[in-house]
């Protein structure tokens, strides 16, 4: 996967965690994964369709989610499955929403769908032309994983516009 697709996710995660957790995120580990996705904790999947197509998964343990929920709510919250799911979806929304905004600024056009909780132990194999980038972000509340699998469907509009006509 090309760096121009990855950097916006790193920048967005840093920006969102700095604002919501009052501390920047540190990249702990970064790897490429060609195997089917296996979640580590509670995972929210957001599908992206357009010039770039694919999906992004935000994955964290319930314990980390509860700590973040407390930060988001500004008070201690009760540890329930509902709170964990809500927290993971809201974080996914913010990180991925900000990422695609940055990608859009680079000329990519696409639509983002609401997050869905991914509860299967396995599944979501990457397609032949889509390898996944797994990014581990270290925050004061614990580790958060981003699993990004995207591929170009179309050239960016500005590249399309500059392709010379063939006589």
């Amino acid at each position: 996967m090309r760096m121009e697709l990855i950097q916006p996710f790193i920048d967005a995660a840093d920006s969102v965690f700095s604002e919501t957790l009052q501390s920047p995120a540190k990249i702990g580990d970064l790897s490429m994964d060609e195997n089917a996705y296996r979640r580590k904790g509670v995972a929210a999947l957001i599908a992206i369709k357009g010039d770039i197509e694919g999906r992004v998964i935000l994955d964290l343990s319930p314990e980390v989610a509860i700590k973040i929920a407390g930060q988001l709510a500004g008070m201690e919250v009760q540890a329930t499955d509902q709170v964990v799911r809500e927290t993971v979806c809201e974080l996914a929304n913010m990180v991925i929403g900000n990422s695609v905004t940055l990608l859009n600024d680079q000329g990519f056009r696409f639509k983002v769908f609401p997050p869905e909780i991914h509860a299967n132990e396995e599944g979501l194999a990457n397609s032949v032309d889509t390898e996944a980038l797994v990014l581990c972000l270290e925050t004061p509340c614990g580790e958060i994983y981003l699993n990004i699998a995207m591929h170009y469907l179309h050239r960016r509009s500005r590249e399309r516009d500059t392709v010379p006509a063939v006589s």
């Binding site: 929403g97 900000n98 905004t101």
Partner: peptide, 8 residues
């Protein structure tokens, strides 16, 4: 109020 803030 949205996390997706692109121009369109």
């Amino acid at each position: 109020v949205s996390s997706v803030g692109y121009q369109e």
